[in-house]
Amino acid sequence: MKARRVKRLDPDVSLEENAARIVSVRLAEMRSFAPAALDPANSVAQHDMRIAAKRLRYILEATGFCFGKPAQTAARRARDLQGLLGEMHDCDVMLPAIDTHIADLRVEDAGALREKAGDARALDPALAARARHRTAYRGLEVLTVYVQARRGLLFDRFLAFWRAQEGAGTWDRLDRAVAGRLHEIKERRRAEQRIENARRELEEAERKARRAAAELAAAADYPITDRTSGTYPDR
């Protein structure tokens, strides 16, 4: 799954500001898989949510300190979620691997039986009873049952975990912390801009005042005062 692009990253601004933008996107990305991933049959959405949780976890590991306790809690929960979904994914990988293995054993046994039959008109069932892998099938079927049941159990745990985090507001708190930080940064920047504007206005006003004073002095044909000393030059 390709990560969503984070817009407006700027190497010239602070870590905090860029991290807030990344965390915000990664969190939304992870949560966007929730409706689909809560369907037990949708292993693709569960896999995508695991990757998204991993991405969120790693950005929080590096930059979570910028966003306080909500980020620390969310990092732990993202790790737990990643672990749970990872175990489900292991089952999803294991089940087809068992099927492939059974199919391979079956092909091998059937081929060997066919060879032993030679030119016979009918296949002797006794040959199957001596098939090389005859004792393996039972255990592999039991294993399939076990892995399938385990996947179901893990899914129920995942569902309960996800609902618990939504109920506890784990992701909402992180979202608010990040949005709050971005808002503060924006306000700070606005305040800095206002100060800069005020400074420019003051400079402009002083320039105008000096120009007006010079014009006044020229008009009166009278030397301008030395403003710093307050003295007048000799006439």
């Binding site: 691997a97 293995h101 039972r138 255990g139 592999l140």
Partner: peptide, 21 residues
Amino acid sequence: AALETIRASMAAPDRPGIDSL
């Protein structure tokens, strides 16, 4: 590692299949 853990809890007749995997 997972299969070895499962194998340890399986009945003896079920083990050859897991061993083959």
